[in-house]
Design a protein around this nucleic acid. Structure first.
Length: 549
RNA sequence: GCUGCUGUAGUUCAAUGGAUAGAACAAGGGACUCCUAAGCCCUAGAUGCAGGUUCGAUUCCUGUCAGUGGCACCA
């Protein structure tokens, strides 16, 4: 529908001699203005040197002819020169019927048809527990992936976990200190990491031992050590998979540091001979000063690759394993500066590879008490956090499955409602609340609609209301919103829309009786259209849709 | 010190350069013999500060203050 309007406006502008003026067609701030609005007259007034109001009047006239009364019942000029288009009841009903009939296909787009896109997210480190920060990346990455798939792309999901490096040595050292030779749980390893990390800071002897351990792991020749290492890693990864499954995520590729060290080292050393990297104090660095990015070490003076070198290795590894048109990498926003340096280096090595890499920074999930760090041991693990919210949800839901669905809805909503990149302040008291502007609010609206649909519809209520309901006029915008959210990698746009949709549905529900009314058939169709829209929308966010609440 | 991001209601968040800056929570008030009250309706309340660009600025630019992140051998 939006496309149709867009085209009509473009044609009208063409006729007026302002064909190349950029303009937007959008949903007006208030539904009372109409269903679509355009600033085309305002935009064109400068180019044509005419008064925006007069121009708007002319343009409105052309639009009426262009669209015809079957589509637009009303085209009006308002404010400084906006043109508001109100759709006809017929056009609205047509869109609602489409939302009803298309079912799961409702809202699917074609913008990314034929494109291969790979999304990297979650990125937990083995030998550490996933904390609530990883939860943010996982939830955002999954939703972005679904939005892009919905836009028609062929998509692959990958995650890149650290399984080698100083942090791993710290955990292994901690385990050995405790005399543990067979780690059994992720918690045990997490605790050992915190202790190792602490000792590294405060005990010079421990620091030496850990550094030696780190190089021994890179060397990989100590068989007993490597067995120990592998075992610990497997336990961590099993725990990750459990959480990913709980969150509705799976990965086509699970990459680890150890997969990328070799290729990373090779590419960087090769770059050194070409003058892309420099030697400095025995280390190999990328000097980013002139490009305005941080200078960083890629290979240490001990000949071990840093995360930056591994990142380069990963970029090439991905290209080899799953060639794509576009690469999206979701990480915490604290990595933005680092990413810029890595990207600058890759640009020098292979400009076309760098050109398709995109970074999506997520915000930090902060506690009211301040930043948390796994080094200091005061982390909230993803697992504990989810359990706590599930327990909270159990108070109102005896069925454990529903409690879990509601809890996940609450958590994901809390994360996705904000524009990605901004930090999320987490107040345990308030964020656990399932009221108001929340995931459960959306789920509840859907449950109520579905309940109506479980009753067989009558055949007597054949009346048609004199005007379309507000909820209908909202439903028809769903495909545009989903497309825009995919284009801008911004699930929050969809969250906002669905919240408005739920609110409008609840108003409808409170004021209009569906079953047994004279417009029953019409209202049943609206109910189905709403249920499809909400179901598909929540699915794109990765939020479960409970059968009852 | 250099640099990135963020300052919107008491609080947590919205607002592709547009119309009367939207919600939710908290506060106060109201409606139910009716498909689930995790719901509905009403009231009150905000753009850090100073300039600039523009027909129009929460949005862009400059400065300033505040918060927060990054800045060579950690990830």
């Amino acid at each position: 529908m939006e496309e149709r309007i867009q085209k009509a406006v473009a044609e009208a502008l063409q006729k007026m001699g302002a064909g190349d003026v950029p303009f937007v067609v959008e949903r007006p701030s208030d539904m009372q203005f109409g269903d679509y609005a355009t600033n085309a007259a305002l935009a064109a007034s400068k180019a044509l040197g005419k008064n925006p109001k007069e121009l708007a009047d002319e343009l409105a006239q052309l639009l009426i002819e262009e669209l015809g009364t079957t589509i637009a019942s009303h085209v009006a000029v308002a404010g400084p020169g906006f043109i508001n288009i109100t759709l006809s009841h017929e056009a609205i009903s047509f869109a609602v019927a489409e939302a009803d009939a298309k079912g799961e296909e409702w809202g699917k787009g074609t913008e990314e048809n034929g494109k291969r896109i790979i999304v990297e997210y979650s990125n937990p480190n083995a030998f550490k527990e996933m904390h609530i920060g990883h939860l943010v990346g996982t939830v955002v990455g999954e939703s972005v992936s679904r939005l892009i798939e919905n836009a028609g792309a062929t998509l692959a999901r990958d995650t890149f976990g650290g399984d080698i490096g100083p942090n791993v040595a710290k955990a292994l050292w901690g385990l050995r200190q405790k005399g543990i030779h067979e780690p059994t749980t992720a918690q045990e390893i997490g605790t050992a990491y915190a202790e190792g990390s602490n000792a590294y800071e405060n005990d010079p002897k421990a620091k030496e031992e850990i550094d030696a351990l780190n190089q021994a792991i890179y060397a990989g020749t100590d068989r007993e050590l490597m067995d120990f290492w592998r075992k610990g890693r497997d336990i961590s990864v099993e725990e990750f998979r459990r959480i990913w499954k709980l969150l509705g995520t799976h990965f086509d590729f699970e990459f680890f540091d150890s997969d990328t060290t070799e290729i990373g080292l090779r590419v960087v050393r090769d770059g050194l001979t070409k003058g892309i990297f420099q030697e400095s104090d025995g280390a190999i660095i990328y000097n980013g000063e002139e490009k305005g990015v941080h200078t960083m070490v890629f290979i240490t003076s001990h000949n071990t690759p840093t995360y930056e070198a591994k990142d380069i290795g990963l970029a090439f590894l991905k290209e080899e394993r799953w060639p794509s048109d576009k690469v999206i990498i979701v990480t915490g926003n604290e990595q933005t500066g680092r990413f810029k340096t890595v990207l600058a280096a890759i640009t020098d090595i292979n400009a076309s590879l760098a050109a398709k890499m995109n970074h999506l920074a997520t915000g930090f999930l902060k506690l009211a008490s301040g930043k948390m760090s796994s080094r200091e041991g005061n982390v909230i693990t993803a697992s504990d956090f989810i359990s706590e919210v599930i327990e909270q949800a159990s108070e109102k839901n005896e069925d454990p499955l529903i409690a879990e669905q509601v809890a996940l809805g609450a958590i994901k909503y809390m994360i996705l409602r904000q524009s990605p990149g901004s930090d999320i302040v987490f107040d345990p008291e308030k964020s656990l609340s399932l009221d108001g502007d929340s995931g459960p609010y959306l789920q509840y609206a859907l449950v109520r609609a579905r309940k109506i649909l479980t009753y067989a519809g009558g055949e007597s209520g054949t009346d048609i209301p004199s005007a379309p309901y507000a909820i209908e006029r909202l439903i028809l915008h769903f495909p545009e919103v989903a497309a825009r959210a995919a284009r801008e990698l911004a699930p929050n746009l969809l969250v906002n829309y669905l919240t408005e949709l739920a609110s409008e549905w609840n108003s409808f529900y409170a004021t209009e009786q569906v079953l047994g009314s004279v417009e029953e058939i019409y209202k049943q169709r609206v109910t189905r259209a709403f249920a499809n829209t909400m179901t598909n929308g929540l699915t794109l966010l990765g939020i479960p849709t409970p059968e009852k609440m």
